[in-house]
C-alpha cells in the first residue's frame, strides 16, 4: 500500500450561474483590480492508502460521484499524487 493524496476539484458546469463568484469579482473590481472573469471551485485533498494510483483515483472518483459533487450542476476532476 502506498500513501496518496487525491485532489478532487468540483466546479459548476459551464453556463450555471455562480452568484458567489460574481460577487467576489465585483468586490475585486471595487478594490481596483481589472479582470475579465472569475470562476470559483471547491477543492478536496483526500489522503488515502491504495495499491496504486489508479485505485486511489477510482476511490476518489466514487467519493465525488456519491457526495462531493452534485451531477445536476457540477463537473469534477480527480488528480492523484504520492504523498
Amino acid at each position: 500500500m502506498t500513501a496518496y493524496t487525491a485532489t478532487v476539484t468540483v466546479r459548476l458546469k459551464r453556463g450555471v450561474l455562480d452568484p458567489e463568484a460574481e460577487t467576489t469579482r465585483r468586490a475585486l473590481e471595487r478594490l481596483g483590480f481589472e479582470l475579465a472573469g472569475l470562476r470559483s471551485a471547491d477543492r478536496f485533498d483526500i489522503d488515502l492508502e491504495a495499491e496504486d494510483a489508479d485505485e486511489a483515483a477510482d476511490r476518489a472518483e466514487e467519493m465525488a460521484e456519491r457526495l462531493l459533487a452534485n451531477p445536476t450542476i457540477h463537473d469534477y476532476e480527480v488528480a492523484v499524487a504520492e504523498k
Binding site: 450555471v16 452568484p19 458567489e20 445536476t72
Partner: peptide, 11 residues
C-alpha cells in the same frame, strides 16, 4: 425529485 436547489441569484 429532479434538478437541484443552489445559491440564490442574489447570493
Amino acid at each position: 425529485t429532479p434538478g437541484a436547489f443552489t445559491t440564490n441569484a442574489s447570493a
